[in-house]
Simulated assay, not measured.
Amino acid sequence: MRRFALAAALLLAPAVAHAWGHTAHAVIDRAAIQAIPETGPTFLRRYADYIATSATLPDSWRGDSEGFSKIEEDPNHGWFREQFAFLKPIPRSRYAFVIALYKHYETIKDSDPATAVRTNVRWTGTLPYAAMEAYERVIVCMRAIRAAQASGGDTAVPEQHCAFDVIRLGHYIGDGAQPLHDSVNSDGWLGPNPNNYTRDRSIHGRFESRFVDAIGLTPADIASRIAAPAHEQGDMFTAVLGFLDQSGDRMERVYQLEKRDGFANAADQDVRALVYERTAAGAAMLRDMLCRAWAESARPPAKVTPSPLDFSNPKFDPETGSAPA
């Protein structure tokens, strides 16, 4: 009983998974824009300062005093995979995902209350949906840029719209690149702990902010580590899920490295290597999504018949009121 009470207390205790510190987010955004090839959306180079300076703007939408904004935005920054291992495949709808979580909660709330208490949208996260929503808004604003170019009009306003949407997309992809954003162990180890990993919630900030700031991370540190372009073809939602899985698979490595000295040694080459690898991965994914969005924007919008809102659409989901993407 005491063991269960401890586990329940750990699960119930509030812990907020914040993003990479501003330094890493800004580096990811700048490095991604610098890596855009000449065939891509090079206009974003003119907005690199604005985008990088605003890289942590979405975190400001999560304040306790702005309750409506907080309840919508908080889940967008995490993807705690252990909480929805039961759910295969992952739904292609934010709302279908939320409904599936609640149904599972109803199933286990009496038999496994410690798990049920976190089987909800806040404690599982919605990061891939936020990323895809931002990505598709980027496509739309890039279409407007192309239309202005074709008509000889001014592209400044649609470019500004696009730069703002890139801030959102870059933030969510940057979060997803940080392994602690992809696990229930985001802010200290939860549950059984045979390896005696820290339960100190400050591990999150000590890794992604204090250590990153101590090493003075810059775009030059990761430029050569950014992978060659990928994702020109294929389903982008699947690619985002794969990116998050790759990052989440490195979660325990963060805890292993923390056991050395709590990230207090800025000269630790293994921690540096992990930071470089993860921020480079985030920059590569963001670069790829921006380039893919630019390519998609050159095509006319796909005609979906019947409409996703039409009851006759074979994929129409009566629980969400729409066919999924």
Rank of each mutant, 00 (worst) to 15 (best):
A228G: 10
S202H: 07
D74F: 13
N196C: 12
G191P: 07
Y255P: 00
F311L: 13
A273L: 05
N195Y: 11
N193S: 10
S186E: 06
F84K: 12
A116R: 04
V117L: 05
A163K: 14
V138F: 02
S224G: 13
I36P: 00
G242W: 14
D270Y: 02
P89F: 14
I90D: 02
A283M: 02
V16F: 01
F86D: 09
F243G: 00
V140F: 14
I71Y: 01
R118S: 06
A295K: 03
R46G: 13
A325H: 04
A323R: 06
Q246I: 08
T218F: 08
P41L: 06
N120A: 09
A227P: 14
E106N: 11
P229Y: 05
K109D: 11
A147S: 12
H181T: 14
K109M: 10
G234W: 00
Q233C: 12
G205W: 12
W79I: 02
P91N: 08
A15P: 01
S224P: 08
E82D: 11
R253E: 04
A295C: 05
Q269T: 07
F311S: 12
L44H: 01
G205E: 05
H77E: 08
K259I: 14
G67A: 08
E106I: 15
S69R: 10
Y129T: 11
V275T: 06
D268E: 05
A85L: 11
P14I: 00
L274A: 04
S202Y: 14
T42W: 15
L217V: 06
G216S: 07
R210G: 11
R299E: 12
I145Q: 04
